[in-house]
Design a protein around this nucleic acid. Sequence first.
DNA 1: GCCGCTCATTGAGGTGCGTCAAAGACAGTC
DNA 2: GACTGTCTTTGACGCACCTCAATGAGCGGC
Lengths: 250, 250
Amino acid sequence: MRPAALPEQLRIACAQCNLVELCLPVGLPANDLKKLDTLVSVRKRVKRHQALFESQAPFEALYAVRLGSFKTVLTLTDGREQVTGFQMTGELLGLDGIGSGRHAVTAIALEDSEVCVIEYAQLEALAQEIPALMTQFHKVLSREIVREQGVMTLLGSMRAEERLAAFLLNLSQRFATRGFSPNQFRLRMTREEIGSYLGLKLETVSRTLSAFQEAGYLRVDRREIALLNREGLRQLLYPERTDPANATAP
Amino acid sequence: MRPAALPEQLRIACAQCNLVELCLPVGLPANDLKKLDTLVSVRKRVKRHQALFESQAPFEALYAVRLGSFKTVLTLTDGREQVTGFQMTGELLGLDGIGSGRHAVTAIALEDSEVCVIEYAQLEALAQEIPALMTQFHKVLSREIVREQGVMTLLGSMRAEERLAAFLLNLSQRFATRGFSPNQFRLRMTREEIGSYLGLKLETVSRTLSAFQEAGYLRVDRREIALLNREGLRQLLYPERTDPANATAP
DNA sequence: GCCGCTCATTGAGGTGCGTCAAAGACAGTC
DNA sequence: GACTGTCTTTGACGCACCTCAATGAGCGGC
């Protein structure tokens, strides 16, 4: 992803990092904000395909994506992999390690990336000191829980078409939040990674994208996506319901 | 579930509730423990099939299951439902509401149940006061994230047999933790609810259970389950791997 | 006691997606 | 510029699970 095309408002709030989730809504006084800036002052670069942290490794820090993007992967004993999420600018990585002191997933950079290192011990200490930060952190954790519930629903009760439509609309919205066009963007991940995330095989992802293009919902050229009919995609997810009052008329 | 057959240790730590997750590992001094007891002093009864809270309702409190069990359900606009979890004694409900101030899921009692009401504002205040409580709460939230990642893996890359085996072994372990037999227990939920949780249809759940019985892994009589060969079930999940060193020999 | 309801089991047949296979397109490397 | 490896597309076929359907078992109500 190109360097911060963030709205002015966000850039001020997150001068040092792109830690949108933690900084933005807190509205801290200058003094506390300075402490927060210190908290996220350490940077780390991660090259494409390199691991930021590995599953089972001791948990010591959270990471805020400053530049670039990541995937988190859970690997089964027999080698099968499940992508549990994609993280882009301003999103947090490492929340899975808090509970057990070890990371549950492996985080891998999808492109050359840069993160802010947030020492967890420091975050805990600061959260103790700044109530608003603690509250905000709880919200971040809870939202991750809700996001995953959404994915569970996707995996458990949606068809391939619906899964992919939901995925594309979600990506679109996240790009928009970051000041990019919601209708034209470049996928950072392969078909296989998308498939793993959505519980599909790469061939099915490819075929479904082709079908969407066929239907005029979008244009797809390798990783480049242009959404032509977002409403159409939304209707796949939230189908027109015939009014039950009419349907049940005698 | 019958009243607390919890180990002595737990019963002391959680005299007022069965709030294992929050109380147990904290090891609080008597003074703080008293405050915690106050926090969870309000009870609420919920009858079978009744909702403890509904999706979209304002979020005000967490709930610790004191007696009985619940399911959490996410409903799509077209009526399809996804069960996102089952909660038994000592587990927390309502974490999904923190992020947005509204509940994301509906919680429904699987049997006549009783919960401790934990006013969230009070919890936040107390967490600010007692660092160990805050730390522990973060762990609880993180573990829920990791649990859901496990379910995502289940839904995304496992076959029906594996999903059900994982589910049964997980239940078994949770019963064991609570002082019940890990090999003999009664399901609190219907085949349909299990299926919804595992992304399967009720017929598939029923058939797979029958197949497990046929294979000698367990006996099943309505809701009653007797595990006869847990190792066998585990092998379904973690298959014997031929040593790659041997397999790749020239 | 009988009745009505919910829940579970089992079978037969259909299908959405996985599997296997082949070929093409691009990016990086020397 | 040719080469090599990674990624993508597309087709043909098969299977795991879904769908539809019928039967039966338990359980509360009157």
